[in-house]
Simulated scan of single mutants.
Amino acid sequence: MSRTPDFPLPNGEYEGYDPTGGVGVGRRVCYALATLRLDVVQRSTIRALLPPGERKMGGAVAQQTKRQKGKAGFAKTNKVSARFQERLNQFEDWGWISKGHLLIAVHDRGALLDHALQGQKELPPRLLDLDRALAKIREDQAASEPDDRLIEQRHRELRALMRLMQAPVTGVNRSGTRSVRFVNRSRVI
């Protein structure tokens, strides 16, 4: 399902690209949403596929010391989580996804994949952290109640992650079992 947005779409310059050779958070989110091939996915699963990021305390040194001692201070910030939220908002504005409190609905998988692969000759071998995402889903399953409505959603996500881990390698990327294999475009869409 493709929507025609009333606002400008991204141009040839993609701000999610890291000029040092890495891939930015936005590109990873696009790739994760496209390659899972699920119409609905949990936000926590997509976040778990991204690097954990560093937690840094904000404010002056005195305020950081107060926080460490259990007193009032500024909350910790995580740049990866902040960028993740920004990119979800951006993709929702472009009409590619709809995000809720717990779930993300994917509307235009092809546009997400095109955006993720734009300007890339090859993807890095460890683009998404599949082991971390599997551990997060299993942790959520263990902590869930028997009447939890997300049980079937977690099963679908586990199957999708296992499918990515077992997908045959295509293209020039060689990756291990702990990373996403470059899936042929015809199998993704």
Rank of each mutant, 00 (worst) to 15 (best):
L150D: 09
N11P: 11
L88K: 01
R163G: 07
F182Y: 13
L113I: 03
V80T: 05
T170Y: 10
V183C: 10
N173Q: 15
M57I: 06
A111M: 04
V40D: 05
T77Q: 13
M165T: 05
G16P: 09
A105N: 11
F182E: 12
S179H: 12
W94K: 05
I151Y: 07
I189S: 15
I97P: 00
A143H: 03
R67V: 06
Q42C: 08
R174Y: 14
P124F: 01
A143P: 00
G110T: 07
G24E: 10
P124V: 07
V80I: 11
P51G: 00
V183K: 04
T4G: 06
L164Q: 03
V188C: 12
G95E: 04
A60N: 12
L161H: 02
A142C: 07
R28F: 02
R138P: 06
L88D: 00
P52D: 05
P19R: 09
E13Q: 14
N184K: 11
V180G: 05
L150P: 08
R185L: 07
A48S: 02
R156F: 14
G110E: 10
D6S: 15
T170C: 09
F84C: 01
G176T: 05
L112P: 04
A135K: 15
V23D: 13
A116F: 08
R55K: 14
